[in-house]
Simulated assay, not measured.
Amino acid sequence: MADNTAGQTKTAGVDQATGQFASGKVVFDATSITATDYVRIETGFLPRYIEWENLTDRIKVEWNEGMTTSQCLRTAAAGTRTLDTTALAVVPDSKGFRILQDATLAAILASKTCYWRAYG
């Protein structure tokens, strides 16, 4: 698995002095992103809940502890919620998580602004 690092400006969220919470923003430039690339987010802990929102296209992806890494809840701009079974769409680990760039998932695309939240 390859992490895409080209064309991104990452901004970490403000520490609210709460246990195991992190948030931030990723702005993607027009650099093309390969369908098998991931974006790596470091939180410093193993997330139990991850929320990723492509604000530009109003698409939200959520993953909860207990779901497999091939499952996530996707909310489309129209409000339609579906259980997405894209292989390895959200991959949590002990230091954060990865989100897959996938055309169907549409969570990560060039020229988009995305916000994320993770709770441990």
Score class of each variant (00 low, 15 high):
Asp15Thr: 08
Arg40Asp: 15
Pro92Lys: 10
Ala78Pro: 02
Gly120Asp: 09
Ala12Glu: 04
Ala110Asn: 09
Asp57Ser: 08
Ser70Glu: 13
Asp93Ala: 11
Cys114Val: 01
Arg58Met: 02
Glu51Pro: 01
Leu55Glu: 10
Thr80Lys: 06
Ala118Ser: 09
Gly44Asn: 12
Ile99Pro: 00
Tyr49Ser: 07
Glu42Arg: 10
Thr56Lys: 07
Met1Ile: 15
Pro92Ala: 14
Val39Asn: 02
Thr5Val: 01
Arg40Ala: 15
Ala106Lys: 14
Glu53Cys: 02
Asp84Met: 05
Ala12Gly: 11
Asp29Tyr: 05
Lys10Asp: 05
Leu46Asn: 15
Thr34Asp: 14
Asp3Met: 09
Ala106Ser: 13
Thr36Ser: 15
Asn54Asp: 08
Asp3Ala: 10
Ala76Glu: 08
Ala87His: 08
Glu53Phe: 00
Trp116Leu: 01
Gly24Leu: 08
Ala87Pro: 04
Asp29Thr: 12
Cys114Phe: 06
Ala106Gly: 08
Pro47Asn: 09
Ile50Pro: 00
Ala110Leu: 00
Gly7Asn: 05
Ser32Asp: 11
Gln8Trp: 03
Ile99His: 04
Leu73Lys: 06
Asp102Leu: 07
Leu46Tyr: 09
Phe97Trp: 11
Ala12Trp: 00
Val26Asn: 06
Pro47Gly: 04
Gln101Met: 08
Ile99Asn: 00
Phe21Gln: 01
Ala12Ser: 05
Glu62His: 03
Arg98Thr: 07
Arg48Cys: 05
Gly7Leu: 11
Pro92Ile: 06
Gly24Met: 10
Tyr119Pro: 05
Gly24Ser: 02
Gln101Phe: 03
Met1Leu: 14
Ser32Thr: 13
Thr113Asp: 12
Trp116Thr: 02
Met67Ala: 04
Ala12Leu: 06
Thr82Asn: 08
Val91Tyr: 14
Ala89Asn: 07
Arg81Ser: 04
Tyr115Trp: 08
Ile50Lys: 01
Arg58His: 02
Lys60Phe: 01
Leu105Ile: 06
Ala6Asn: 03
Ala106Val: 06
Ser23Ala: 11
Lys112Ile: 03
Ala22Pro: 02
Ile108Cys: 02
Leu88Gln: 14
Ile33Tyr: 12
Thr68Tyr: 09
Thr34Ala: 15
Arg81Pro: 00
Glu62Lys: 14
Gly44Val: 10
Gln16Met: 12
Ala89His: 06
Val61Gln: 01
Pro92Trp: 03
Gly7Trp: 07
Glu53Asn: 04
Arg74Val: 00
Gly66Asn: 01
Val61Asp: 00
Asp102Glu: 07
Thr18Val: 14
Glu51Arg: 04
Arg98Ile: 12
Tyr38Cys: 08
Asp3Glu: 11
Thr56Pro: 12
